[in-house]
């Protein structure tokens, strides 16, 4: 898996970069540029899925010491920056609460990837062109004081009804076609568990028509047990 994913990432690197080189051509036809931008977006999405699989494998077998630690504020900022590049056809605004300095969590480079995946999943589930996210980072007192939470709220996200009615980690057992639409959220749950944290989705309302939800990621404080 490790070797295959490494090669796939190299291939995606080449495809993405050549598309970026095409986009850098002066006077490029606007339709060609639009197609190239869409292709870049899909390559990035494909890359994210490959990295997700790698992460699950890595996080499950690595110790906290091997995984290293991540500065949570920095990871949140970088994830927000990355997000806009992934969805060139959407206007994404992420309003962040004051990010705490010195908040370190277990997971090293995997933390940013986890955040990007959750945010990208939220954006994909939001049918609006203008996406407004509210990101709050806080100490998690009810978590044995062992960690930090990152709460990502989107008032317009449209969750499939099954996600509202079922725990996120058992959605795939109910309907695999639906599960594929929320695979990023499934990944987030598995990866957060593997890093000693948790992930949960709190819908704002019941039923298919209700929109809005808060996506809560709990991460273990670096050095805690």
């Amino acid at each position: 898996m490790d070797l295959v994913s490494h090669d796939m990432l190299n291939d995606n690197q080449a495809v993405q970069s050549y598309l970026e080189l095409i986009l850098a051509i002066q006077g490029l036809d606007s339709r060609a540029a639009d197609y190239a931008r869409k292709a870049v977006s899909h390559v990035r999405s494909s890359t994210m899925r490959i990295e997700n699989v790698k992460t699950i494998v890595t996080a499950r077998k690595a110790s906290a010491a091997t995984l290293g630690r991540a500065d949570l504020a920095e990871a949140v900022k970088e994830a927000c920056d990355d997000l806009q590049h992934m969805f060139p056809s959407k206007a994404i605004k992420a309003k962040m609460s004051t990010l705490p300095e010195g908040a370190t969590v277990t997971g090293g480079g995997l933390v940013k990837e986890l955040l990007v995946t959750v945010m990208a999943s939220v954006v994909k589930l939001d049918p609006e062109k203008d996406v407004q996210l509210r990101v709050e980072v806080a100490e998690e007192a009810g978590y044995g004081n062992r960690g930090w939470t990152v709460a990502i709220e989107d008032p317009h996200v449209k969750l499939p009804a099954m996600v509202k009615e079922t725990d996120i980690d058992s959605v795939h057992t109910k309907d695999s076609s639906l599960a594929s639409k929320v695979s990023g959220l499934l990944f987030a749950k598995m990866a957060a568990d593997a890093l000693g944290g948790d992930f949960d989705v709190q819908p704002s309302g019941d039923g298919d028509a209700a929109r809005g939800a808060i996506f809560v990621l709990k991460l273990r404080r670096a050095g805690s047990r």
Partner: peptide, 8 residues
């Protein structure tokens, strides 16, 4: 690198 864990 594609190996993020090698950063440190």
């Amino acid at each position: 690198s594609a190996d993020v864990l090698v950063e440190k």
